[in-house]
Design a protein around this nucleic acid. Structure first.
Lengths: 341, 341
DNA sequence: CCATTTAACTAAACCGGTTTAGTTATTGTA
DNA sequence: TACAATAACTAAACCGGTTTAGTTAAATGG
């Protein structure tokens, strides 16, 4: 079964490649190809199941109908979910998705962007390490369509779809305060990511607004690489009788997971001794012991909107560029047993 | 900043496109391009950061350096993990990965295969719905490189990388029996997947080998679409005083998750009243209440091997095809509290 | 009835690379 | 000294589509 090419159809129907190409691209009418010829071509193509070579088409059209997705880590449930929605939406719109994980390494991210551009993707969706301003700027200077998700560059004017990190954590903190917790610790990852900064700020603002003084606050920043092992020690340190916290907020889901593990190992009762809550969740947070209260991110919306904005951008005349789209989505708050509500 | 093309380099250095192409593809020596010219070309390309258009290169070479990954669902942690390893390994080998989810629909899978072929992927890694024999056969007839993962077609001679489903569940069942459980229920999904059949068979064989009679067995097959809601009722039914099971084996991780949820809601003590274990796990199985004993699949090995075999296949001369590679990987067994060990 | 349109089509250039089949000048050999 | 071999290149075809700029014959218009 050998492959059927445009020229084969042309030859077999005694018409030109041009005619076949035009008709199969729905440009038959505007190019005055007779109804009859159009039908012959379409029938033949359907009968022998003709499908164009996308590389050839991409090369001559200057576009590949492909979008690139660069995320920190596809194995992380949060990004895996986003990837799922991005792919589904992209497919609806006729695009294929190529993806790669940057593993939080700016140089890797930089290489991936370059490599995807070589592959002629028509647009990019990036959840950046946020240490790659120059690549992002370059994309922008070249009017290359892209959308940042989950993480954005606060001082750059780009399209983005992020969540209200500040508001989400503010809500969670307030909730703990309202339940009477006075000494709330905040466990986060050492990171320059704006999202992480915002979460920290939201926590602080909530404490300030409720008049919680300096000694009611404990911020622990763990190292990305060693947090799993460091967690237990850190928790032990802030649960000593002197500076005992009565609640812990985790800035992200995997920290909450390890925190829970450590608390359980230390036999600290949740929520009686220490209440906990997490920003972002994992699929089993409702089944762990105890179920964890969490700020929930609208993953589907992030994925769908990113694609919608990008497609818009890719279709749009680059010269008459519509203004950047910046979207900050609200989070949800799911109350479970771990906060003692 | 306009893009630099091969012909620009040629023009600026007063050499032919041919020379530039050959040199940049490391074919300078064998084509007797002088050392000096080679150096000039390489220096220029590096200086102005030349990168070839992959569509053009792909079109003329007849290959795209891209591999397609088709899985049931990228949002599922098992497949997300595999995707991560596949992508990482593929990148090491110089390949880009495009992926799509089939959501267990054979027609969707069929379309995806076709669409990826149009995009000129050089090879495919497929976790099939296993209801698509004709597409798989077609790939095979055309000597198109592909590897099946996680699910294979038992009656087709293809490359595959799967796990020992039978052995894994046999081990788990035996473990429960050895702990003194006599009435072990098996909860699975209504499915023709060979993997699922093997798990059922492994369970039955283990019971047979240990002389457990008919009334010590309960197999419940839930519907893929409604298992979440059906789970509670089913569990209630098999925990009635008359046919009370003292252990439950779940054929896959999401069933175990829902099963645990249902058991907890019904206030059935695990493992005292009913011990449970799962085939395949999720990242929080060690944190749920109680932690779940599980058969663990070697996700990294699956991903790595699939890529290795595929790359081999893609490089290999199709005419001198090496024999199919069929790999059945051993599972691990992680004992936690839920089985009462 | 001749000049213009228009309908219906096509040849050839093009996209940006790779590759085949030469070409030219120099060196080696009989 | 003539002829083959070799070194160092290049022109042009090719990959499989899309698109521009025509061409031809019939229909319309003044």
């Amino acid at each position: 079964m050998k492959k059927l090419y445009l020229k084969d159809i042309a030859k077999n129907l005694n018409v030109s490649k041009t005619a076949v190409s035009l008709v199969l691209n729905n440009k038959g009418d505007e190019n005055k190809i007779s109804k009859e010829t159009q039908e012959r071509i379409i029938a033949y193509a359907k009968k022998y199941n003709y499908v164009p070579n996308q590389l050839a088409r991409g090369l001559s059209r200057g576009k590949s109908e492909t979008i690139g997705l660069i995320i920190p880590n596809i194995s992380d449930t949060f990004y895996a979910q986003i990837a799922g929605f991005v792919e589904a939406r992209a497919m609806e719109m006729g695009y294929t998705v190529v993806f790669s994980s940057s593993y939080e390494k700016p140089e890797k991210e930089s290489k991936l962007i370059q490599s995807m551009l070589n592959r002629q993707v028509d647009g990019l969706i990036i959840s950046s390490t946020q240490k790659n301003e120059k690549d992002i700027l370059r994309l922008q200077e070249n009017d290359f369509p892209f959308v940042l998700i989950d993480r954005h560059y606060p001082n750059l004017d780009t399209n983005y779809v992020i969540v209200d990190n500040f508001g989400g954590i503010y809500h969670a903190t307030k909730h703990l305060l309202d339940l009477g917790r006075k000494k709330i610790g905040f466990v986060t990852i050492k990171s320059d990511l704006d999202a992480m900064q915002q979460r920290l700020l939201g926590y602080i603002k909530a404490l300030d607004d409720h008049g919680v003084e300096q000694d009611g606050r404990f911020v622990s920043e763990l190292d990305q690489k060693t947090y799993v092992t460091d967690m237990a020690e850190m928790i032990r340190a802030i649960t000593t009788p002197e500076k005992r916290v009565d609640a812990l907020l985790f800035s992200t889901h995997y920290l909450a997971r390890e925190g829970l593990r450590a608390l359980n190992e230390l036999n600290i009762q949740i929520p009686d001794e220490v209440a906990i809550a997490s920003f972002s969740e994992m699929s089993a947070f409702d089944l762990v012991n105890p179920p964890i209260t969490a700020v929930i991110q609208p993953v589907q919306k992030i994925g769908d909107l990113a694609v919608d904005i990008l497609v818009d951008e890719m279709k749009g005349d680059h010269m008459i560029k519509t203004k950047d789209k910046r979207i900050v989505l609200d989070t949800n708050f799911k109350i479970r047993k771990s906060c003692g509500a």
